[in-house]
């Protein structure tokens, strides 16, 4: 406590601005130690295990046909699901922000259900609905369309878990779009449709891109809600996280590490892209002020 009471600047911590508030060393120290123990060291263990293969071995393992197949299934289905979520998520955000109707707040609260509902529960529930005997599956079964146990089922599960990411990213930005901008557009002669397509949607573009990236990243990594509905047929409906799990069951730790490393690299690239989008839109449009 004595160090905290004395306001004299400490030379060793010159990387921070002086402050009279105590506890900097304690809290930052704990934060970094805890982060290192829980997140950083385990991730480094993964990197070391993959690196142990050497570049050639890594490349060979990463381009194994089944691995590539699983990655393709994961990324393609996640892309489709994120695309669908962007369309409907934007619509839902629009409806929730702009319109007043009975039950709006409940509607708004339910959007977060996928954040709260355990993925395994969502997985078996979606399977129950979309299986050939389920409520929706039964509608399509007679015309020969199968949803569960096909990649379509994977897309459905990814839509479920990705929707709130899109809605919750767009909502606050849409609330920020001032009424005056729309009025300005109208006074300049733009029809309502032109105002929406030329003024409102373009100003939402950064948020829509961010929402897309978040939903996509979540979809690629998702496991629990997908494995029940996917059918898990290699090259067709086997997702990359499941293949990691299978490799682990086979005690093929290196194989699992390679897939995980590839996925992580792509996720971090996505994260980086999201940060770039946000920095760019802040710089150019001044959002977030």
């Amino acid at each position: 406590m004595s160090a905290a009471v004395s306001p004299a600047p400490r030379k060793g911590l010159s990387f921070r601005q002086p402050s009279v508030i105590p506890g900097f060393g304690l809290t930052l120290g704990f934060t970094i130690s805890y982060f290192s123990l829980i997140i950083l060291i385990p991730l480094i263990a993964l990197a070391i295990r993959s690196a142990g293969l050497g570049p050639e071995g890594f490349w060979k393992a990463a381009t194994d046909a089944r691995v590539l197949g699983a990655l393709r299934v994961s990324f393609v289905t996640a892309l489709i699901a994120a695309g669908i979520n962007v369309v409907f998520g934007t619509l839902i955000a629009w409806v929730l922000v702009r319109y007043r109707f009975p039950g709006r707040r409940i509607f708004d609260a339910i959007i977060d259900l996928p954040f709260a509902l355990p993925t395994a529960v969502a997985g078996i529930a979606l399977t129950a609905i979309y299986a050939p005997s389920g409520a929706i599956g039964a509608i399509f079964a007679p015309i020969g369309w199968r949803i569960a146990y096909t990649p379509v089922g994977i897309v459905i599960a990814m839509i479920f878990i990705g929707l709130p990411f899109v809605v919750r990213t767009i909502q606050p930005i849409l609330e920020e779009v001032s009424n005056e901008v729309e009025e300005a557009s109208a006074t300049l002669g733009a029809s309502r449709f032109q105002t929406i397509t030329k003024v409102i949607l373009p100003s939402l573009t950064p948020a829509i891109l961010t929402g897309f990236a978040l939903a996509f990243a979540r979809g690629v990594g998702e496991y629990g809600s997908i494995i029940f509905i996917a059918g898990n047929i290699p090259f067709v409906s086997e997702i990359a996280p499941l293949l990691i799990y299978i490799r682990l069951q086979e005690f093929n730790y290196v194989g699992a590490s390679v897939i995980a490393t590839v996925m992580l690299l792509i996720s971090f690239a996505m994260l980086f892209a999201i940060n770039l989008i946000q920095a760019w839109s802040r710089r150019r449009y001044g959002y977030g002020h």
Partner: peptide
């Protein structure tokens, strides 16, 4: 839209994008 007026807002209301 049909009135053909020019309107200037207090907070500019420029299109940021």
């Amino acid at each position: 839209q049909e009135r053909n007026i020019g309107f200037v807002f207090q907070h500019y209301a420029l299109f940021r994008h």
